[in-house]
Design a protein around this nucleic acid. Structure first.
Lengths: 339, 339
DNA sequence: CTGAAAGCGCTTACAG
DNA sequence: CTGAAAGCGCTTACAG
């Protein structure tokens, strides 16, 4: 026998029509109990698996959702974040018997971004978008198109977008306040993320607000790119000007904090003795370095799971409220001076 | 207008039949140059995107490949390994305009594993399987089914399988020999991976072979599970029996090495002064801890890319030779005592 | 060389 | 209540 088992094969075996098989397998009430079990048995025996193409073509449903990662940001964000997102998304998709498609190519050719291809072709019923830059025209077009889409992260410039994120401003302010209030730090440096991303903007804003509220002696900002070397570079640049002028550094993520930490220690600056260091994310790195880094635990897996739930609601045609904010946790370790 | 733009819409615009549009867009020679450009323009103007379901149903090709991850996603996704695999796989798939599907649920219900569902349903044209256990009956059935599949890793028990891997035995022997020959270590401990996986078996075999060749004073083996805590546990168990009896520990991966390293340092054992430590993988962790861990760099991204190439060859009906072995690199850092 | 039909596998609206 | 047809969007084999 060649080719996969089709509904017709099952129908022939039982002596009914393909339509009956379809309804029997769907549990449709109009098929008699006897026929239903006969069909199920025949399907099992033959190893029948429904054709996803046939089903999708007819029902206009792919039973798949896609994760879109704009190419520009694929570099910017650490790999571990992505895995957490994929895990959260997969668990929800699995529960709905939906496939997960990963679209990593930005593909700006012919004005259509990756999401357009995957959605308009019907390969996916909806998309999760992560790490989108502020003002990305493709993302704006997607949101305005009304196609099912949920953004992970905050997009205040897109009032109609369905978003799932955290309060980056508050979280960044909290961890900054920890340095100021608990450890008595006064001269702070912030190594920010890219400022064309909302997380970069918000974490910087939180840092500045906390510093101002506490009357910090200084609160400077240097822009990084979230990759480890950029944290080291930010510190190295300060060290070139003479003795390190700060007693606390707030990095916008853990990768940069790891790089900065190493640069400080290499230069003989005692962390946390003389300088407190904190990061952001807690996707795995912060816990294993020496000293372990105090950071904000971002619930990436949960964010993605919630985003996927919202996405399925959208796909099912239910109306979904705009913004969900998940709580974060301050994870105190030793790099700030605690314990 | 409701619903997506279809081939018929494009045909109507140009004043031809849908069949002509299909052939024009496919670049079929029989369509005149004039018609072809007219069709292309109309398609662009209308924003036509081919229906993946329609195309798949007709051409019996999904233009998608799937990554199958047999174990529970939570543990497996903690590993950066999968990020590398996804990256390598995606780059090849993108070049062929194919989607990437991630199947994480083991789904042994009704005798059909995840790969069967995704392949038999036609949702994917072929699958990449990673981290399969030795003797996994689903994997064996997959290989024997003749469906397009490539395994990442070595499967000597499946002679017909198409595999892409590294020489774990040789690599493990090399790094073990480094401890023996360069650092003069004599009493070695190996913390292995699970021994129902070929990498666990092979890395242990390499360790034992190197130890025997060099006439090591001892070469003991403890089985771990590749997760960080199990490395710490393996060391802790040794320490409970009294002073640490080994002067070199070969961990089967970096995660366990990080855990073991911390356990040794917490107990006041000098690494690398008194004990040399090495890992395996180099997916990101080994470089950032203190001291940085000497390890074997596994080219996971390249393995996945090569595996995806092989997979597309299989899908295209070309015959593919069984086994590909990629070279690895010994990455010397400080945990062994170098530098 | 070109037009139009057949059919991939499925589900549902329709006729009996 | 049940059988059989129609049609989702596409591509290719066939007739003209």
């Amino acid at each position: 026998v060649a080719g996969p088992v089709t509904m017709k094969d099952v129908a022939a075996r039982v002596g009914v029509t393909a339509a009956t098989v379809s309804m029997a397998l769907a549990g449709h009430g109009r098929i008699s109990e006897a026929t239903r079990t006969a069909v199920r048995e025949a399907a099992d025996e033959l190893g029948y698996v429904p054709s996803s193409a046939g089903r999708a073509l007819r029902s206009r449903r792919a039973d798949a959702i896609a994760l879109i990662v704009p190419h520009s940001s694929a570099h910017v964000f650490g790999h571990l974040y992505f895995m957490h997102v994929l895990t959260g998304m997969s668990s929800v998709a699995n529960a709905r018997d939906a496939q997960v498609i990963v679209s990593t190519n930005a593909d700006t050719v012919s004005g259509g971004a990756a999401y357009a291809r995957v959605l308009r072709s019907g390969a996916a019923d909806g998309v999760l978008v992560t790490s989108a830059a502020v003002g990305d025209p493709h993302v704006r077009a997607l949101v305005e198109s009304g196609l099912p889409a949920v953004l992970i992260g905050n997009h205040p410039d897109l009032p109609d977008a369905v978003c799932v994120g955290i309060d980056d401003v508050a979280a960044s302010a909290d961890i900054t306040a920890h340095l100021l209030a608990v450890h008595g730090r006064r001269r702070l440096l912030h190594v920010s993320g890219p400022l064309d991303h909302q997380t970069g903007i918000d974490r910087r804003a939180g840092f500045l607000a906390a510093a101002e509220r506490a009357g910090a002696a200084s609160a400077d900002v240097v822009e990084g790119d979230l990759a480890e070397p950029s944290g080291a570079r930010a510190i190295a640049e300060q060290l070139e000007r003479g003795p390190f002028a700060y007693d606390g550094v707030v990095f916008a993520n853990d990768d940069m904090a790891v790089g900065g930490l190493r640069a400080l220690r290499t230069a003989g600056v005692d962390v946390p003795g003389r300088v407190s260091v904190v990061g952001f994310d807690d996707f795995g790195l912060a816990r294993v370095v020496e000293p372990p880094i105090t950071t904000v635990a971002v619930p990436a897996e949960r964010m993605a799971a919630v985003a996927a739930e919202r996405l399925f609601e959208l796909i099912d045609g239910r109306s979904v409220h705009g913004r969900t904010r998940l709580p974060v946790t301050l994870v105190v370790r030793r790099s700030c001076g605690c314990t």
